[in-house]
Amino acid sequence: MSKGFLKPADISPTDFKEPIPTPLPNGSYAPVLTKEDLDICSRRMCVMDTVSYAYATQNAPCATYASFYALRKIYGGDEDAFNRAILNQLDCVFNATPPVSGLILGAGLAIEDTGHEAGQQAENDLKVGLMGPVSGIGDVFIWILPLTILGSIAGYMAMEGNPVGILSWVAIWAVLYVWRMQNYNQGYNAGVQIITTMADKLAVLTDAASILGLMVVGSLIYSTVAIHTPLTFAFGDVALPIQEGVLDLIFPNIMGIGVTALVYRLIKKGTNLSLIILGIIIVSCACAAFGILA
């Protein structure tokens, strides 16, 4: 099958006219999936990502939707086997960072492509075994770091009325998107190798990237958190504004650091974020009412 963006042109979901696949002498099957088939899986995954997330099955339906036509091709005219394969996909709990989940699911399809139904247990084990570690890496590199670095630059520039930060974020994300629209191939070809051999280097890479993130966050705590007190000490004729005369001399934006440290502690303790936000609003109102903050 080939030619088609989300659906191969020459395979129908209703007619099972293809010949029933026959096993090789050693019990395995000749692999049938091509690069185009896997591209279609990757693109179908882009349509789904994590949209089917439910507490019991998590993203298993998304994985099923993505690999539908690949499975259809693997099992050919054997409709019963295809049906069991679809139900197997639906029932195998799966949840990984969507942009990299094609790496795992592609590796799983590689097993099913040669092993057919005998390979499904290994495929399921692989999916469940890898989804944790791959998501651990994926969440950091796909969500947390881009959001920290690109998101804070975009947000900071936007606050000053400059959309350049937003546009560069969109451009960088687009590059990732082009890659992920074919990433079942990397999973299929490298199978498990890519994830295991790169693991030790990835730890250093994660650390290096965290340094980048922490420095940006450190600078933003100064430049975006704005807490100002209009209070003034008055000794007879001498007036000493607390903000400019005392606090800023100790440390610029010292109150911002204090509040950040406090909220960090509260979150680490497990305090609900909504409560913290509500608390900030209440304290702000109280301080504003008494003229402590402005």
């Binding site: 966050v217 933003l220 705590i221 975006t224 958190v225 704005a226 807490i227 100002h228 911002g256 509040v259 950040t260 909220v263 960090y264 509260l266 979150i267 974020l273 913290i276 936000i277 900030i280 609003i281 702000s284 109102c285 109280a286 301080c287 504003a288 009412a289 903050l293 402005a294």
Partner: peptide
């Protein structure tokens, strides 16, 4: 006025 103050402090929650 309190909401204005809060708008200056709330980014803290994201950083923390």
């Amino acid at each position: 006025a309190g909401l204005n103050v809060a708008a200056g402090i709330l980014p803290v929650t994201g950083f923390a």
